[in-house]
Design a protein around this nucleic acid. Structure first.
Length: 209
DNA sequence: GTTGAGCGTT
């Protein structure tokens, strides 16, 4: 039975979330359920996936009903070999709503609105500190190897390409692909400034020695 | 067919 995550989170009121890292990309909740359920009562299992490609990111969340069972599972399944890879089991640090989690359990949010003294000065101290954070999405690259793969292919392709005739066939195929991408990109974000630099392209006409 | 630091939903 794999009705996990089929209808969203069932109940995260009194449940302890565990984070499973270093799992195989093909590992599913069904594969982890019998493993974690053996050490305790598993309430729900969720494996986040990429919304663009839809591929799993390589980690899963297992929610236990009791903390003692979760702790045991961490101590037991942590470092276990699953699907040929060693998985890492530990308590979740953050929550689904970006909330803090203590010992795998979500900390209740503080009541807002009522009881808040608005008579206080509007000046805040943590504001400046938070501002120091980087505004850009400097997150870790999900797959740096994949990028390298693409780049490597391009590099090899360029180095290998030394003829003029066979390029036509490939150029045509690539042109169509680029057109499709250009159309998609035009809708998302259009940069007229960029297009207004045809000179650069001509200037960058570097001849291969 | 692949990859490998990290923190979450139809």
């Amino acid at each position: 039975m794999s009705h996990f995550g089929r209808s969203g989170p069932p109940d995260i009121a009194d449940t302890y979330s565990l984070l499973i890292l270093n799992i195989s990309f093909r590992t599913t909740a069904d594969d982890l359920f019998p493993l974690f359920d053996k050490y305790g009562k598993v309430v729900d299992i969720f494996i986040p996936k990429d919304r663009r490609t839809g591929d799993p990111r390589g980690f899963a969340f297992v929610r236990y009903k009791y903390a003692d069972e979760a702790q045991k599972a961490v101590d037991r399944l942590d470092g276990r070999e699953v699907d040929g890879r060693e998985i890492t089991v530990q308590f979740a640090k953050y929550g689904p709503n970006a909330e803090r989690i203590h010992k795998g359990r979500i900390i209740e949010k503080p009541p807002r609105g009522r009881g808040r003294s608005r008579s206080r000065s509007p000046r805040r101290s943590s504001r400046y500190h938070d501002d120091h954070q980087e505004h850009g999405y400097g997150r870790r690259s999900r797959s740096r190897s994949r990028d390298r793969h693409d780049r490597d292919r391009g590099y090899r392709y360029r180095s290998r390409s030394r003829s003029y005739t066979p390029d036509i066939d490939k150029t045509r195929g690539r042109a169509r692909y680029d057109e499709r991408w250009t159309r998609s990109r035009s809708i998302e974000s259009y940069s007229p400034r960029r297009s207004s630099s045809p000179r650069r392209g001509r200037n960058a006409y570097s001849r291969s020695p």
